[in-house]
């Protein structure tokens, strides 16, 4: 659609006025638009929209140097979007000859006014001063369907002629469509943020879970007496014997014995040879039974491991039983002590 702006020059004579009216009537008869010029009454503007911005435009022919336009930024509006209505008053020449009233927000249907603003600017074009006053109205659609903005009225007075007129824009219709889902670019950071937050949360939960689990297992292990652990290991050495790894069997027995002595008596039993170890036990005045059993176990172990001694079945059973008795007795003594402490 085309946009027509009809300007009335100020100080026109009646002949010119007649000529303009004739032209307007001619245009009206051609069906383009209808302009009325009634002295002391309002004036009609032709509502048109530009194809480029799809905006609705209304222009009012008044005196040739004063026009009013009303246009919206969108003719189709998603339900979750905001509509901007701009009402522009343009004046060419001397502004002092007019007296304006402020533009009031137009009546609307299915729209909700959320805010408004106004601004002024001026420029010189072809030696003429142009003055603009713009009123901005922001609306939110209420529901889907058609929404309408009723004509905007501007009442003004031509001071030299002492005549009052009203400029009016045409009614603007806006189609309110379904709300739009935010495009990918805009939600991408949000999605990433959610994913990161979720991942971090999940990681923290997993960490807390495993930490608690480990703590519990450590607590369980701590509460388990050392002798029990060593007895379990001792039972495991039977597999070596069954597999025929005699040297490894006696090696394991020797290691378990030394570990027990280290834990129970605080001797660095892992780093000292048998003879030295027995000497330390004697220095500590340990129980004769323990000394004798330890000596028997470690001596046979050393003989098998370092002197290729072929241990008899009796010796194999003997070292096992001696160590088992050492550990079991120690465990029982511990239990007795605990019971005494409790009572």
């Amino acid at each position: 659609m085309q946009q027509y702006i009809i300007i009335y020059k100020k100080g026109v004579n009646s002949m010119k006025k007649l000529l303009v009216i004739t032209i307007l009537l001619l245009m009206f008869s051609l069906g383009f638009s209808q302009d009325t010029l009634n002295e002391g009454t309002d004036s009609q503007a032709v509502g048109l929209s530009t194809p480029e911005d799809s905006s609705m435009l209304a222009s009012v022919p008044v005196w040739e140097d004063l026009t009013i336009k009303a246009f919206v930024n969108k003719d189709s509006l998603p339900e979750n979007d905001t509509l901007l209505l701009t009402v522009q008053v343009e004046l060419i020449g001397n502004p002092d000859i007019y007296e304006f009233s402020e533009v009031e927000p137009p009546e609307v249907s299915h729209l909700d006014l959320i805010s408004s603003a106004s601004r002024n600017r001026s420029e010189v074009k072809n030696g003429k001063t142009l003055m603009y006053k713009e009123y901005l109205f922001y609306y939110n659609p209420i529901s889907m369907g058609m929404a309408y903005i009723n004509p905007v009225n501007l009442k003004y007075k031509h001071i030299p002629l002492d005549k009052t007129r009203t400029l009016q824009t045409s009614r603007i219709g806006i189609k309110v469509t379904e709300p739009l889902i935010p495009n990918d670019k805009s939600i991408l950071p949000l999605i990433m943020l959610i994913v990161v937050a979720f991942t971090a949360g999940a990681a923290i939960l997993i960490w807390v879970y495993f930490r608690n689990k480990k703590r519990k297992s450590i607590e369980v292990e701590e509460s388990k007496p050392m002798e029990e652990e060593l007895l379990t290991e001792l039972k495991g050495t039977k597999k070596l014997l069954e597999a025929g790894d005699i040297s490894d069997y006696f090696g394991s027995i020797s290691q378990i014995t030394r570990r027990y002595l280290r834990e129970a008596l605080g001797i660095e039993a892992m780093g000292i040879p048998t003879k030295e170890l027995i000497g330390k036990l004697e220095e500590l005045n340990v129980d004769d039974k323990l000394l004798d059993r330890t000596q028997r176990v470690l001596t046979v172990c050393d003989m098998v491991r370092f002197a290729r001694h072929e241990a008899t079945q009796l010796e194999k059973d003997d070292v096992y039983m001696n160590l088992e008795m050492v550990l079991t007795e120690s465990l029982m003594n511990k239990s007795d002590e605990n019971r005494k402490n409790e009572t």
């Binding site: 000292i272 040879p273 048998t274 003879k275 030295e276 050393d302 370092f306 002197a307 290729r308």
Partner: peptide, 11 residues
């Protein structure tokens, strides 16, 4: 008086 070496000998 031994025919084999033990860790005691080494140490």
């Amino acid at each position: 008086g031994r025919g084999y070496v033990t860790p005691e000998d080494v140490r």
